[in-house]
Amino acid sequence: MNESRKDTVAFWLFVSPWVCGFALFSGEPLIASGLLSFTNYSLFAPPSFAGLDNYSALLNDALLAKSLKATLAYTLLAVPFHLVSTLALALLLHSAVVGQALLRTLYYLPSLVSGIAVALLWSSLMDPHSGFIHTFLSSVLGLKGPLLLQNPKSVIPSIVVMDLTSLGSTTLIFLAALQVLPAELFHAAKIDGAGRLKTLFKITLPLLSPVLLFNAVMDVISSLQVFTPAYIVTKGGPEWSSYFYVYYLFRAAFFQFDMGYASAMAWILLLLTFASICLIVALTRPFVYYENKPAASNKGGRRHVV
């Protein structure tokens, strides 16, 4: 066996656990759900071919419209909130503050808690009788019994706030990106007399734009798939205001046992997610600066660099 062949064998041996895992746990279910979306399948009887029935039923589904509305409302609020708060946290952790090393460890700890525990924790904090938030608002601001999770108008913002305990991973990406930004640009800006805000908007953010785009795309994907708060805390209510798409999909699959319909919903979500990402990438193209790309590719991005 020559060296090249041995390398090939070693390569496949090393990647085989992932390949097997992907094929069994991602690839196979993906193909299966695609096939099931053209069937009627209840788990308890063999699937029967239904053609495009599941997809055409989605067009007349009043609950689908409600779930899309709730998911869109959440995404539009959660993505900017998450990006701004994680970037702010990363900038804070990047600056030379006392106890920086400790802070950099502590900020990530809440992200280690499971989504279910986080949802229950926030639900308890927002309890209209004994929750900390209620007690604080009523004793300090004199507001009586804010029904944060019981009111259709406040439930989405309340769920978005729950995101505060899962900022770790995105902040980590921002922090890593901040640490490799070219220091000479910041020195030059300082010499030119640029203030902190100007440096932030003219140097830091343009240089971070590819990372911002990456995090925005990841946030959109996870926001479109939001599920846990609805399942654990709100049950999709009140008045459908948190009836998120994936929650509806889950109920179609595991309450109605309509696997064909749920599979069709899953594929529609995949297409919606793909379309959203394409839209974001297209809209942000003029504002994203890639340092290692030829000048022509950065026509828009260069405008923002000092």
Partner: peptide, 18 residues
Amino acid sequence: YYPIILDTMNQSLGPVWN
């Protein structure tokens, strides 16, 4: 599939009760 029916009834009537 009654749980989903009951939830649909309850959520639909939420605006009426409010």
